[in-house]
Design a protein around this nucleic acid. Structure first.
Lengths: 128, 128
DNA sequence: AATATTCGTTTACATGTGTAAACTGTAACT
DNA sequence: AGTTACAGTTTACACATGTAAACGAATATT
C-alpha cells in the first residue's frame, strides 16, 4: 500500500472525483467538480501534476489526451487518515473519538440500530 | 465559540499540553513535551506566538514571565475538527465513518460494551 | 553598578499549498 | 501547408508551516 498520507485538501477533491469514476481527463474532472469548487483548468492541472509526482495517481494516454486514475485506493486513504486523525486529535483513544462524535451528532434511530448491529457482529467475532 | 479550525499539527502539540494544565510558561511547556517532540525553546516560542496571533491562547504576566493558557477549549476544538474530518474524508456520512473505524480497529469486549451503552442511552433520548 | 542570564520579539529560510498565467507541442481545420 | 485550438509542462507568487538563530530588554548575580 502506497503512502496516501500527503494528499492536501484540494488534491483530495480531485481524488474523490477519481475514486467515483476513472480514468478521467482534466476537462472531465473540471466538469464533475465545478458545482463544488470553482477552479480554473490550470489549477486543476497543477493538482493533477502534484498528485502524479506523489505517485497517488497515474495516467494513460489516448492520442493527445491523458486520462488519470488513482494509484491509491479510497480504502487505503481512509485507513491512513483515520489513523492520523485518531492520534492527532484523540491521542489514539478510539473510545473517546466515538463518544465525542455520538455526543455532538444527532443520529436517527435507524442509524443507531445499524451501529448496534455492527457492534453485535464485532462481539461475535471476538467470542467465536 | 472562537474559530478553532486553524491549529497546525505542531501548534496542536502545544495546545494539548495547555489543555491538560495551565497556565504554563514556555519553559514549562518545553519540559512537558520534550519526551514527545524535540523542539528548541525558540521553536516553541514561535508556536506560542502564532497561537496568540490566532487568538487561540492568551497569557498573563507575572513579573518578567509569561504564562500561557487556552482561549479555545478542547471541546470546541474537537467539535470543529470532528466536523471538518467528517466532511473532508466521508462527505458528511457519519455512519460510514463509524463503520470504517470499527472495521479496521480491534476493539476489546469492554470497549464494545461501553459503546453499546452509549448507543442505548442515545436511543432513550430519542424515544423519550 | 556592571555583567551575565533569561525572557520575549524580530527576522529568517525552506518546503508545502492554493491559485493561475505563460509556454510549448501537436492535432485539427481551412 | 498554415494557422488555430487545445492538451500538457513550466514558471510564478503569496501565504502557511516547520524549524530556529539573532536581537533586545529586563532581571538576577557578583
Amino acid at each position: 500500500m502506497k503512502d496516501a498520507s500527503r494528499i492536501s485538501e484540494s488534491e483530495l477533491e480531485i481524488m474523490k472525483t477519481l475514486w467515483k469514476s476513472n480514468p478521467l481527463s482534466a476537462n472531465e474532472i473540471k466538469s464533475l467538480i465545478e458545482h463544488k469548487v470553482d477552479w480554473s483548468l490550470p489549477t486543476i492541472k497543477t493538482f493533477l501534476n502534484r498528485l502524479m509526482k506523489k505517485e497517488i495517481i497515474g495516467y494513460e494516454k489516448s492520442g493527445r489526451k491523458y486520462f488519470y486514475f488513482p494509484l491509491v485506493s479510497y480504502d487505503d486513504y481512509v485507513k491512513v487518515e483515520n489513523n492520523s486523525f485518531l492520534h492527532r486529535v484523540y491521542d489514539g483513544a478510539l473510545n473517546m473519538l466515538f463518544s465525542k462524535f455520538l455526543e455532538e451528532k444527532n443520529l436517527s434511530k435507524k442509524d443507531i440500530d445499524r451501529l448496534q448491529k455492527i457492534l453485535e457482529d464485532k462481539k461475535e467475532d471476538i467470542d467465536k
